[in-house]
Design a binder for these strands. Structure first.
Length: 231
DNA sequence: GCGACAG
DNA sequence: ATCTTGTCGC
């Protein structure tokens, strides 16, 4: 698991591993029919101290109430390289994941993370890496575009426009609330674009960003603040 | 070669 | 990611 990451320390190693793991991605299969629980992932950074903190939250339908969570703080082990974000964020996220699993009666039905899935230069963004690693359905929801072209979706909640890369739809610009800026989502693993849009809308009953993202963001920041006191 | 570039 | 107050608007 993480031992596999221990050997990845250069851009070359990371890209080689991506090329290997991308073949495992299932990006056009039926998504979860029901979602009783959903997990959210996010990482916060302190640029001064090199500290980072990952957080995993588990929310329960239909109100998306927090039922479990875990965090993991540590030092940055990989630089930010566009296209290799997962090698930077996965270590703390997987550590938090391992800590949250024992709190659950069953694995979450869906995982949502910050950043893209297959809307990625090599079709293997953070959401894909997380998905194939834990073997569960994942969706990537990003606040800004990364690759591909898309037109502006209509102004109302639920309207969307495909993100086109290399002639294929790799994701969608989705309006999650009337009049707010769109989010950019793509399949990570074991689901499809329609299902992903459906569940992301469900996770955005009130705000632009999914409840999973909002809650995980808060928790990761709190965990980072806690970790800074230790330094 | 130049500019862009999730978090 | 992160640095950051007030302010316009529903």
């Amino acid at each position: 698991m993480s031992s596999r990451h221990a050997s990845v320390e250069t851009v070359e190693d990371a890209e080689a591993l991506q090329a290997e793991l991308r073949r495992l991605v299932e990006a056009d299969v039926p998504g979860p029919e029901q979602v009783a629980t959903v997990a959210g992932f996010d990482v916060a950074y302190d640029t001064d101290t090199d500290l980072l903190a990952g957080a995993v939250v588990v929310l329960a339908a239909p109100r998306w109430e927090l039922i479990a969570s875990a965090t993991a703080a540590g030092r940055v082990t990989f630089p930010y390289v566009p296209g290799l974000l997962s090698f930077r964020e996965l270590p703390p996220l997987l550590e938090a994941w391992e800590a949250v699993l024992p709190q659950l009666a069953a694995p979450p039905d869906l995982l949502v993370c910050d950043g893209h899935g297959i809307a990625h230069p090599r079709r293997f963004g953070l959401a894909c890496h997380l998905g194939v690693t834990v073997g569960l359905p994942t969706i990537g929801v990003a606040k800004t575009p990364f690759v591909g072209e898309h037109s502006a979706p209509g102004p109302h909640r639920g309207e969307r426009a495909p993100i086109i890369l290399g002639g294929e739809a790799v994701g969608a610009a989705l309006r999650t609330q009337d009049g707010v800026r769109e989010v950019y989502l793509s399949v990570g693993h074991r689901t499809n674009l329609d299902s992903a849009c459906r569940w992301v809308l469900d996770l955005c009953p009130r705000y632009r960003l999914p409840e999973t993202t909002r809650t995980a963001d808060q928790l990761s920041r709190a965990a980072l603040a806690e970790a800074r006191l230790t330094v």
